[in-house]
């Protein structure tokens, strides 16, 4: 009996200690909850201090400043993004979110970044064009735009079918580890992500000059939520006007890709 009590007390103590550790619970004014994949630099990721930042998140911060909202940066598991949005635990998906192929699934803002899907290979692999990929193993993130392009009839399905194997993975770290190890020959991804990864990993890797396609990024709201979309969009236009938008694009090296007038 004594032991049982001690067990229960121990568990209780651990629980309470931990509650003190977290001690969160802020609920005030209007919050604007942005869902993002925290493993998707440079659009959304963890900075050197452990805070979430990125081009998209800083834009969202500026929007909230204009509107007087409180920004909540909510990292999500990318595979669950639709569940998160539909169930109302986030207000929008804003994270290098490709519009093309998903036009009817969300309430889209205007496109603000032009993005291409590209192929990254090892510099010494001998692969120089898309046609060299025939019979090779190509990695692509699960539920990503690159995967959509490679499996969509109107996209690059023919190319996708020419691959030996289309290998899905969860995060880019794993994908690059596999590329290094030679278990995949190439990885398909957004150009912005590709540039960030190569900057971090050095010139062992190259982007093929031939792109898979060109596409655009937007902010995805829940279908039918035009009210919130319009508010965010008008704030975005204001940021473009006062120069903040371009300033941020410059900071993240995305100036060439901005497609927002």
């Amino acid at each position: 009996m004594k032991l049982f009590k001690k067990l229960a007390l121990g568990a209780l103590a651990v629980g309470m200690m931990a509650t003190v550790f977290t001690g969160c619970g802020k609920k005030d004014s209007k919050t604007f909850t942005v869902g993002f994949d925290a493993e998707y630099p440079p659009y959304g990721y963890m900075d050197e201090n452990g805070d979430y930042t990125g081009f998209d998140l800083e834009l969202a911060e500026e929007v909230c400043k204009l509107k007087g909202w409180t920004l909540v940066k909510q990292p999500i598991a990318w595979d669950n993004k639709d569940n998160e949005l539909n169930s109302g635990s986030i207000d929008c998906i804003w994270n290098g979110f490709t519009i093309n192929g998903r036009e009817d699934d969300y309430e889209w803002s205007v496109p603000y970044v032009d993005n291409s899907q590209v192929i990254v290979v090892k510099a010494d692999s001998g692969i120089t064009s898309l046609s060299d990929l025939a019979g090779k193993t190509v990695g692509v993130q699960a539920a990503s735009a690159a995967l959509d392009v490679l499996t969509d009839e109107e996209g690059q399905k023919a190319l996708g079918d020419s691959f030996g194997k289309l290998q899905e993975f969860g995060d880019y770290n794993t994908a690059f580890a596999e590329l290094m190890a030679g278990s995949v020959d190439a990885i398909a991804m957004d150009i912005g992500v590709a540039m960030y990864q190569i900057e971090g990993r050095g010139d062992e890797f190259v982007i093929l000059a031939e792109h898979l396609n060109a596409e655009q990024y937007g902010i995805g709201f829940k279908k039918g939520n035009t009210e919130l979309k319009d508010e965010v969009e008008s704030a975005l236009r204001e940021l473009k006007k006062n120069g903040k938008f371009d300033e941020l694009a410059e900071k993240y090296g995305l100036s060439d890709m901005v497609c927002f007038e």
Partner: peptide
């Protein structure tokens, strides 16, 4: 968090 830092720093 480990996953996110790994993504940021492109390391294991």
């Amino acid at each position: 968090i480990a996953k996110q830092i790994a993504a940021r720093d492109t390391t294991f």
